Simulated scan of single mutants.
Amino acid sequence: MGAVFNTLPLSETENLSNISPNRADWLTSHADATGLAVVEVERLWNRFKQLTGSKDQTKLYPDSSTVANELSNDIFVKNFLKHIPRPKSDISSIPFGTFIIVMQWIDSASVQNKLAAIYHYLNNGEPIDSFMISKLLKHVYRDAKEDEIRALSLQFMQQLGGNDQAKVNMSQFIMGVQRAIPPNELDELLKFDIIPVHLLDEASVLPSLQGSATNIRSIDNFGSNDQVSDEQLRQIANQVANKDWSRLAVTLGFLEYDIESYKVTNGNDSAATMLELLRTWREQSGSTATKSRLKRHLNESGFPELTYILN
């Protein structure tokens, strides 16, 4: 994966590494340098702050303890960050500009290029064997027995065109995955949108931040009355607390792993957990955390009766 990322135009954002995130043009400067929409940069900045555990840290040091909380113990996150290229001026850091360019590549790369990146990610670009697959599967199926892992790894190798003794090269891996998984399903599995397409459509009616070369929308055309308030989030959290509230959490984009973690930190209090999830959703969504969008999520998760709270 490192070999793939090393071809990216990282120089586009190098001159932004010393800009303070407190400056008004922090987001717009990165948007103009990369061609991303401001709302996409805003989403990625919120994700980056999750990684650093800081609101103003512009560089991530993944080899140190600064990677936030449970992310520092996630082997997949650690391996992914390890493969992101580093600037020559500070080889231990990942600047925010580099991070968003890598995310932009993942958003737009072809299926074949993504599979090539995954191949490099799995074994540092070296041929894949059943032993490596077994190691990977142990992290995925933590409760599986050794013989079950062994059987799964052999099945995986056979699907790729190899066997117990052989090693699979990159071409075999790409062809094997494409042969084993239907194209539509593979596209969906590898799909990564910085901002889902329908949200970009919604963002077209919102104002860009001032100072951007791509700011073609007028801030006067947009009122603040569509933003979700704390009181509205609190009412929704209280209303769903005694129901299957996890449906709403999943619809908001949280994984089961995230939900369980929030439950633990909130003492298994359903209302408190849901409120924190809603606040996190609002923070991560930035300017697209609108009433109309939250209404859609309530409808999709089976709580249409609560949309009145957002009127």
Rank of each mutant, 00 (worst) to 15 (best):
F96M: 07
G267T: 09
D187Q: 03
P183W: 05
D90C: 03
L152N: 08
S108K: 12
V168C: 10
N184M: 14
D230G: 06
V177G: 08
I84S: 08
S246E: 11
A241C: 03
Q239F: 12
T58W: 05
K114V: 00
T34P: 02
V38Y: 02
D269E: 08
I195H: 02
I194Y: 04
K114Y: 02
A3W: 05
R296L: 13
E126K: 12
V250H: 08
S134L: 00
L44N: 01
P182F: 07
A213Q: 06
Q210V: 14
V228L: 06
N69Q: 12
A68R: 14
E276R: 14
R86P: 02
V264Y: 11
G176E: 07
E276W: 07
N69P: 00
N221I: 00
S54F: 05
Y121F: 11
D226G: 13
H120K: 02
D147I: 07
D164I: 08
K295D: 03
D90A: 09
S108D: 06
M132T: 05
A249H: 04
N268Y: 12
L152Y: 06
S134E: 11
A144T: 00
G2P: 01
F303A: 07
I133L: 08
Q158T: 14
L306T: 07
Y308L: 09
L81P: 05
T307L: 09
R142N: 02
E283T: 12
W26Y: 14
V4Q: 08
N266F: 05
N113W: 00
A180P: 08
E148H: 07
H297V: 04
I219Q: 10
D244Y: 06
I194H: 05
D201S: 15
Y119M: 01
Q104G: 01
S72K: 13
E305H: 10
A272L: 15
V41K: 09
N79E: 10
V168I: 15
L160F: 11
R150F: 01
T307V: 15
N163Y: 08
E126T: 02
F156P: 01
E300D: 14
R142S: 06
Q227T: 12
R86E: 02
S208N: 14
D32H: 10
G161E: 13
A237R: 10
V264H: 08
G267N: 15
S93A: 15
S108C: 01
L294C: 10
Q112E: 15
S130Y: 01
A213W: 03
W245N: 15
H198W: 13
P9Y: 06
K78W: 02
Y262G: 03
I101Q: 04
T273W: 04
G35F: 09
A109Q: 01
A237M: 13
L277M: 14
D230N: 15
